[in-house]
Each structure stands twice: as C-alpha cells, then as structure tokens.
C-alpha cells in the first residue's frame, strides 16, 4: 500500500465529509454520506487484512477526534475516542470476511459493502453510546432516533459508494493497495 497516497486520500475524504455535510444533508436529522468510510471500504476490499484493519482503525480514530460531542445541553463539548475507531474496525472485519465472494469490479459491490458496512459500524456506535448513556446523563441520547437516522446515513453512503465504485479500479491502483491473486480450488492462480 502506498501510505502517502492513502494519507492524501484520507485528507481529501475528511475535507469532503466535513465540508460537504451541510450541502448534502437530507432531512432535519442531517443525514449525509461518509466519504471516510467509503475509503475504509475501498482499502478493506483490496489491501492485506492487517493493513486494512489498521487503516480503518486510524481513520475511525481521526473521526472520533475530529468532532466533539455536545454535553450538558450544549453548554460545552467533549471529545470521546473509541466508538468510531472500533466501529470502523468491525466494519472492516465484515468487508474482509466477505470480500472473497464479491465481484470487486462491479460498482454495486462497493455500494453494497458501504451500505451494510456502515450500518454495522453505526450499530456499534449506537451500542457504545447507549451503554454509556446509562451513566453519562450529560450526553443527550435517544437510541431509536439515532439508529434510524444512522441507518439513513448507511443507505446514503451506499448510494455514494456506487458512484465511487465506478472509479474504484483507478482509485485502488492509485492507493497501491494489494490485489490478491485469483484463486481456484483454494490455490492461487499466478
């Protein structure tokens, strides 16, 4: 994997995610796609497992660090590290486990994995926040509405993933992520 290319792609994805949110937001809940997660899926789809998981962990960690949460009714904010890092890691594991059965050159593949991977990641995030809301009354948390809105995010991310999937081939080459050899009867074909 070309680390510099992934770094640049990560920076671009964070810029798009944070900068385009208000333009792409749908509904009062502000549902918008996650470009960073699409990058996670692109890397997880082609890179070696350990590289993919570390990349997703770091991108999730940066997502956690980038935006603080409102606490005590918006009086102040607090950074919480972990939910997105773990969620993206779990989603990466999901992609790694089923990528062998996927047609990687089909744009729908990236859309499908983005949608379901994001849904899994958001379930993890909601689970963590719901658990901690039991002893953290400072954070206003409504699990049901959050889960519904976040599943909307997953769907939206999947739709954007289909568009990105058209360019997945050149993108994968630019990132330098490893393309594992085709296999037949568990033996690699070189």
């Amino acid at each position: 994997m070309n680390a510099i290319a992934v770094l640049v792609a990560g920076y671009i994805c964070f810029s798009l995610e944070l900068g385009l949110r208000k333009a792409l937001a749908v509904g009062s809940a502000g549902i918008a796609p996650s470009f960073v997660f699409i990058l996670c899926v692109v890397v997880s789809l082609s890179a070696p497992p350990s590289v993919a998981m570390w990349t997703c962990l770091i991108l999730g960690l940066l997502t956690d660090l980038t935006w603080p949460h409102e606490i005590a009714g918006g009086v102040s904010t607090q950074v919480i590290v972990g939910p997105y890092a773990i969620a993206y890691l779990v989603a990466s594991q999901f992609v790694l486990s089923i990528r062998g059965n996927m047609f990687r050159r089909n744009p729908l593949t990236l859309g499908f994995l983005c949608c379901f991977g994001m849904a899994i990641a958001q379930v993890v995030v909601v689970a963590i926040y719901t658990f901690r809301s039991g002893y953290t009354p400072e954070i206003a948390w409504d699990p049901t509405s959050q889960l519904l809105a976040r599943l909307g995010v997953a769907l939206y991310t999947g739709l954007v993933g289909i568009i990105v999937g058209v360019f997945a081939g050149p993108l994968t080459s630019a990132l330098g992520v490893h393309q594992p050899p085709q296999r037949r009867f568990t033996r690699p074909i070189y």
């Binding site: 937001a25 549902i31 980038t66």
Partner: peptide
C-alpha cells in the same frame, strides 16, 4: 459541520 449525527455543532 460535525461528521457525527449526534453532534450538530
């Protein structure tokens, strides 16, 4: 804007 739905800052 925030990348997370629960934070609308």
């Amino acid at each position: 804007m925030s990348s997370d739905l629960s934070s609308g800052v």
